[in-house]
Simulated assay, not measured.
Amino acid sequence: MRPTIYPRTETRLQAGAVVIFFRPDREAVARANRLAQILPVVIVDNTPIHAVERSVDVLSDLDTAIVYLDNAANVGIAAAQNRGVDNLLQRGFDCALLFDQDSDASVEIVEGLVGTLQQLRGSQRVAVVGPAYDDPQLGGIASFVKFGPFGIERVPAEGQFPLAVDFLIASGSCIDLSAWRAIGPMEAALFIDFVDVEWCVRAKRAGYGVFGLPWLVMRHRLGDQPAVVLGRRFAMHSAFRHYFLFRNAVALILYNRDMPLGWKLSELRKLPVRLLIYPIASKQPAEQIRMICRGLLDGIRNRLGPLSPSSTGRQER
């Protein structure tokens, strides 16, 4: 039986949304305004205070009901999510839905996430539920993921029942804030990549469930225009972002004992492929190589936290 999508008139968990901004455009503001018609919204803005994009006052169109928190710097996705969730906790909310600025959630998705979380938590400890996501650039609806003994296992996003999985991407997820208190916040030192993976691993270790809801599908774009090599699509990002991808992968493999062996083996196999593909597919191969190498070195040293803007000239997402 398909879990109930609770009607808005029925008593339910008090849910709020946290949306992370970074150099937002008017479309991002419009999406946040639409979301604010469904549930309370907190925006945490990671746009650096001196960014060129701030000369265009796109924020003037924000719905006045939205709580706007300005970090005035790119402090990373994890720290921004933590600040938004802290705001909801202080205001007594029961659960938090996390969104990137390019994620567009419908009433059905919001109601489905909150209603299913409420139903599941009646019989077990649940950390987070999340929809399947559809990225047309990468070939449509992505599978959910579990960690096997020697790698990751794909779980097709099919059916009408919650699927027990091992991690969910943060955008579109709905977190039980009573579980958040027990598990702890996102790991701010990771800055961006693998933040959601590490948190879900911690949640599972603490005895909380992670569930994918395959009948709910949210459109979400991962990265820039993907590179296609031998018929396979690879999500592409800036050199700045690839620094964190390589750094955090290496640091988690070497120093985090809680990360599952299957995840570590999977990432070890991916690293040399990414090392080859990213510079080849980029318009700035030298910069890609420089930042990837720096990420590998910092990962080996377990040197986490933000990257100095002076090392890249301009921080990118």
Rank of each mutant, 00 (worst) to 15 (best):
267 E>I: 15
256 N>F: 02
221 R>I: 09
247 R>T: 05
261 L>A: 11
278 Y>S: 15
213 L>Q: 07
262 G>Y: 04
254 L>A: 00
257 R>Y: 01
269 R>I: 07
209 G>I: 04
224 D>E: 15
216 L>T: 01
246 F>W: 10
236 M>T: 10
256 N>G: 01
234 F>A: 10
241 R>K: 10
259 M>T: 07
259 M>G: 00
237 H>K: 14
233 R>P: 08
228 V>H: 11
264 K>T: 03
239 A>I: 08
250 V>S: 00
219 R>A: 10
243 Y>A: 03
226 P>T: 12
266 S>K: 12
273 V>H: 04
247 R>E: 06
202 R>S: 05
240 F>A: 03
206 A>R: 06
265 L>D: 06
248 N>K: 02
213 L>H: 08
275 L>P: 02
203 A>S: 05
255 Y>R: 08
236 M>P: 07
258 D>T: 07
262 G>K: 07
218 M>L: 10
242 H>E: 14
239 A>D: 09
258 D>N: 13
252 L>D: 00
226 P>M: 13
277 I>C: 09
251 A>D: 01
207 G>N: 07
219 R>W: 01
202 R>V: 01
273 V>R: 11
216 L>Y: 01
215 W>C: 09
223 G>V: 09
242 H>A: 08
233 R>C: 12
210 V>P: 03
201 V>E: 00
233 R>I: 12
249 A>N: 05
264 K>L: 03
230 L>F: 12
267 E>W: 12
234 F>Q: 11
220 H>V: 03
240 F>P: 02
227 A>M: 13
218 M>R: 08
274 R>G: 14
220 H>P: 05
252 L>F: 03
221 R>P: 06
230 L>A: 15
214 P>W: 11
245 L>A: 13
257 R>F: 02
220 H>N: 10
275 L>C: 11
225 Q>E: 15
273 V>E: 11
254 L>C: 02
244 F>W: 03
270 K>S: 12
213 L>I: 11
214 P>S: 12
251 A>K: 05
257 R>L: 04
227 A>D: 09
252 L>M: 14
213 L>C: 08
258 D>Y: 09
247 R>F: 01
230 L>D: 13
238 S>A: 04
250 V>E: 00
211 F>I: 05
253 I>P: 02
245 L>F: 12
224 D>K: 15
265 L>F: 07
249 A>M: 11
238 S>Q: 02
264 K>D: 00
251 A>V: 03
256 N>D: 14
206 A>C: 06
240 F>R: 02
207 G>A: 07
202 R>F: 05
229 V>C: 11
261 L>E: 09
240 F>G: 04
202 R>N: 04
274 R>D: 10
257 R>T: 02
267 E>D: 09
279 P>E: 05
209 G>R: 08
210 V>Y: 00
241 R>S: 15
257 R>I: 00
254 L>Y: 01
272 P>C: 04
215 W>T: 06
269 R>D: 04
218 M>N: 06
208 Y>T: 02
270 K>H: 11
248 N>M: 06
